[in-house]
Simulated scan of single mutants.
Amino acid sequence: MPQVLDLWNRASRLPAGPRVFSLLFTRKAPYFATIRPRFTEIGPNRASLVIPNRRRVHNHLGTVHAIALCNGLEAAMGALAEATIPAGKRWIPQGMEVSYTAKATSDITCTAETDPEQWTSGDPDLPVRVRGVRDDGTVVVEGEIRLWVTDKSR
């Protein structure tokens, strides 16, 4: 079982486990600490986290800033990739394409998803579907993060 998924599964059983996991995740990748992600789900092919709506991530309109949203999407994608990637493979992000579809006026749930067959197809180009949703269910950002998945020996 991948290390991130193993840690998530163990931490999730504890009362403050998801918060502890989220802190550990941001210690490993400090840039993600800027949005204070609260992971809610990590598993093969799916990961979700919440970006709290707080002043530190606001833009001049008082809504969650576009780059904070992208940061949340990338953190969710990274957790998904680490929890899903087959043994002997590695991944690296190649690019991100997103559309901002509504104002981010609440906490935002960022979700990344793939299909199982994407990881075994042999095609190194792997698109990860991402979206951010307000508390009322409105999608505020959606798009794709493209990964390059290759053998570790390459």
Rank of each mutant, 00 (worst) to 15 (best):
L49Y: 11
E113V: 06
S99F: 01
Q94G: 15
S106W: 02
P93H: 08
V50K: 08
E82I: 03
I67E: 06
P52Y: 05
L73C: 15
L61M: 13
A83E: 11
I42Y: 06
A47R: 03
R46C: 12
I108S: 01
D123V: 12
Y100T: 05
A79Q: 05
G72L: 06
Q118A: 12
L126R: 14
I108D: 01
W119I: 10
I42F: 06
H65A: 06
N71K: 00
A68H: 06
L73D: 10
L69V: 03
P116A: 12
G43P: 02
N59W: 10
L61H: 15
K103V: 03
V128R: 11
G88W: 09
C70Y: 05
E41K: 13
T114V: 10
V128Q: 10
M77K: 15
G62P: 13
K103E: 04
H60Y: 10
P44E: 15
L61E: 05
R54S: 08
A87G: 04
L73A: 14
N45I: 00
K89M: 14
G88S: 02
P124D: 01
R56Q: 10
Q118K: 12
H65S: 02
P52C: 06
A66H: 01
Q94H: 05
A66S: 07
M96L: 15
L61P: 06
A87N: 07
P116V: 03
I85H: 02
V64D: 01
K103N: 08
D125A: 08
G43H: 00
G72P: 05
S48Q: 13
I108C: 02
Q94C: 04
L61G: 03
A81F: 02
P116Y: 05
G43D: 11
L69K: 07
W91I: 01
P116K: 03
N53Q: 07
Q94M: 15
R46A: 08
A75M: 13
R54K: 13
T111F: 03
G95D: 10
G72Q: 12
Q94V: 11
V64H: 03
I67Y: 06
R54I: 02
A75P: 12
T111R: 10
G122T: 11
K89T: 06
A112Q: 11
T40E: 14
R55H: 07
E97H: 11
